[in-house]
Amino acid sequence: MTLGDATPIPQGTRAPIDRIGATVLKELVETIVSGRVQPGENLPPEGTLSQEFGVSRTVIRESVKRLQEKGMVTVAQGRGTHVNPMSAWNLLDPLVITALIGHDDDLGILDDLSVVRGALEAAMASAVAAEHSDDGVERLRESLEWMRVSIDDSTAFREADVRFHLIVMELSGNLLAENVARVLFERALESTRYQGVDPERAFELTMVEHENVVAAIAGGDREAARRAMEEHILGSWERRRLPTAKRGKD
Rank of each mutant, 00 (worst) to 15 (best):
M1E: 08
G4S: 13
G4N: 10
A6D: 12
P8G: 00
T13P: 00
R14H: 09
A15M: 04
A22H: 09
T23K: 11
K26S: 14
E27C: 05
E27Y: 02
E30W: 00
V33T: 03
G35M: 09
E41V: 00
P45C: 03
T48I: 13
S50E: 10
V55Y: 06
S56D: 08
V59N: 06
R66A: 15
R66L: 14
L67P: 10
L67C: 07
V73H: 03
V73K: 02
G78D: 10
R79G: 00
H82G: 00
V83K: 09
N84E: 15
M86G: 03
A88F: 07
N90M: 02
L91F: 06
P94M: 01
T98N: 14
G108R: 12
D111Y: 11
R117A: 07
R117G: 11
G118T: 01
E121A: 00
M124T: 06
S126Q: 14
V137W: 03
E142F: 02
S143C: 10
E145I: 05
S154N: 10
S154G: 02
E159L: 09
D161E: 12
F164D: 09
H165D: 12
S172V: 01
N174S: 13
F185E: 03
S191Q: 01
T192M: 07
R193S: 13
D198T: 00
E200W: 07
L205N: 15
T206N: 13
T206Y: 05
T206G: 08
H210V: 01
E211N: 07
N212M: 06
A215Y: 00
A215H: 06
A218T: 02
G220A: 00
D221M: 04
R222Y: 01
R226K: 05
A228N: 08
A228C: 09
H232C: 07
L234H: 13
S236I: 00
E238N: 07
R239I: 06
R240I: 06
T244D: 10
D250Q: 12
